[in-house]
Every structure is written in C-alpha cells, then in structure tokens.
Design a binder for these strands. Sequence first.
DNA 1: TTACCCATGTAAGCGGTTACATGATTTG
DNA 2: CAAATCATGTAACCGCTTACATGGGTAA
Lengths: 181, 181
Amino acid sequence: MALEHAILVSLLEQPGSGYELARRFDRSIGRFWTATHQQIYKVLRRMEADGWVTAEEIGQDGRPDKRCYSVAAPGREALTAWLREPVQPETVRHELAVKIRGAAFDDAAGRAALISEVERYRADHETTLRRYLAGEQRDFPDTGDLDAGQRLQHVVLRGGIEYERMVLAWLDDVLHTLHDL
Amino acid sequence: MALEHAILVSLLEQPGSGYELARRFDRSIGRFWTATHQQIYKVLRRMEADGWVTAEEIGQDGRPDKRCYSVAAPGREALTAWLREPVQPETVRHELAVKIRGAAFDDAAGRAALISEVERYRADHETTLRRYLAGEQRDFPDTGDLDAGQRLQHVVLRGGIEYERMVLAWLDDVLHTLHDL
DNA sequence: TTACCCATGTAAGCGGTTACATGATTTG
DNA sequence: CAAATCATGTAACCGCTTACATGGGTAA
C-alpha cells in the first residue's frame, strides 16, 4: 500500500483538508495515484489516530467547516522509512490490451465497435496530454531557478507527458492494425 | 473487473489448466494483466459454475492430474458483450513517482538510496525489454503472413516494447535529475 | 430551480493479496 | 540430498469501489 505515503507527500508539499486532497488526486497527484474521497477520509482518520498527521478544525463563513491536515514528525519518519524500502513491482491492469487481443474472437461489427472505443480513448489521452503540457507551461516556465522539490515534481510530470505521447503513438498503431484486418 | 475476460481471451487463444494459465500470466498475458494462481483457480471455478468454461479431467503419468479448461458458448457470449462495453479508465498506481516526489522531503542519504533503487528498477525494465524483443523475434519474424489473431497479439506486444523504451528514457531523465540536485 | 461546488462521512461487498498446505517427480 | 517443477487448493484479511446520505451556498 502507498496511499498513506502519497497523502504524506501531498500534505508535505501543501497542508490541506480531505476534500482538497481528493481534488489533488483528481489532478496533479492523480497522474500517478488515484483515490476516491471516501478512501482518503478513511485513511486520514487512521493516520490521525496513529499520530502521523495532525488536524486543525477551521470554521469558514458561507462554507462548511473543514479539517486541515499537516504532517507530524512520526508521519515524516514513516515516509522516510518507506522511501528506503525497495520499490514494489507494479501490478499491470491494462483492459484495452485485453480487448484488443479479444477482438480476434469477435466479428466485424465487434471490431468496428472497438475501433470507435479506441478513438474515444485516444481523444481522452490527447486531452490529458494537452492538460499536462499546459500545466508544465504554467508551473515550470523557467527551468533555470527551481528548487529541489520543483525539479522533482517536474521530472515526474515529464514522465506523464512522455507516457501520454507514447500511448498516442501506440493507439495510432492499434488503429492502423485494426483497420488493416 | 476483467480477470475473467483476460482468462477467456487466453483460453480462446489456447485451452489449458489453471496452472498453465498462471504461467501465461507470468509471461505473455502478464504484460497487461497480472494474477496469482490462487485467484485464477478461484475465478476458474466460478466461471465453470456459471457455464462460461468447461473442464476436462486429464490424468497424466508421472505428473498430477490436471483440469483442462475450454471456453463454452456462454463464455464466448460474455466476452463479446464485454468487448462492446466502454473501456474503463485505468486506475494509476505508480509507486516510484510517489517516491521521487517524496525525495524532496528526505536527506542526502535518502536520495542516494533512491538513486540505487531507480538503477535497480531500470535494470529490471531493461531485462523486460530484452525479453519482449526476443519474443518478437521468435513469434513474429515475418510480418507478412500473419492471421488476425497474430497481428493483434503483435500490436499489443509492440505497445509493451514502446512502453519499456519510454520508461527507460524517463528513468535516465530521473537519474540525471536526482544527480543534479 | 436545477445543478454544481464545498465538505465529510457510513455501510456493504468484492476483488485480490498473503500465508499456509499437500504431494509426487524431476533436475542439479 | 536439496531444490525446483507440476498441480490444486483453503483461510484470513484488507484495500478499495460502489452506493447512499447530508446540507448549505452559488451560479446559469
């Protein structure tokens, strides 16, 4: 598991509420770790009970109260301990690849439907790539004067960008292959 | 869920036992879907109960008996129905990216340890790439005369190859970034 | 007035991991 | 003689998803 650690990193970069964390997991952090708000709230409560984070009740006018979380010393220690552990090999779950190989056992109508799906999927990834590139322009316009944290965030973002480019090129390959069947 | 469907595709490509499926999930299918043998046996039993697959008891001399599974008509229908469903957006879980961003909150010793980890991780992916390329040479030496199923298997394999190349290039970028901190 | 944003939860269930178990045969 | 291969499972646990719930404020 690493949701706890992803939360620790995010809170170290910037303290915030469960709701704010959920939004980050839909945006920047979501590039490499997804989580629903339910799961985030649950883990935050456990981390608070374990003393990894501390919460500050903040009353707001015109808006519901929120609990702003910050990382405590034990949480920081837990993070550094985890950083020193070996990286677990990722578990791969690529549904589209299964469907492409499955298309061999479907008829022409099924393959036509798959082509539409791949095109929609491709459009989604093109949108994602554009969002990443816009974020890069916004957050890292001048690559000269960045601190360590920013440089690390940037290299992770570059990974996302290169991943999306690779996916788009592959999907073109897939579409050609499906058309040529 | 799609483990059932990954199993259906694999059994349509070639009938086999739970043990053989587990080995395939460690090799070719494992490129896009991972599963342990325990999970595979469990799902196979359920699929058999649902009439998706049929099992044939095969006694072997010098080896334990095995149950050879084949896809039945209802299983094939379930697969084509699933193929027509929209592709679910993948849930991303990239532990290494979390660790890289986390390195901003660790000391020099921690960053040195992370560099070692990234190098080990890089070596693993280089091995994987070489295995993919060897498999491509072996299974698709002549791209001219391939049937539909082979061409689809090949395009999925090409995706794996391009993914590994992208990862290797990015890891070099990561290593440079970590060294320059 | 419909719908979305802010903000935080509970409850049920399931897919999947981890640990453990068995036992014969072949290979180093 | 130990280790790996072949072959199939059970049991406990848990991370995570899905569905449901609440309630005020704000924009179209």
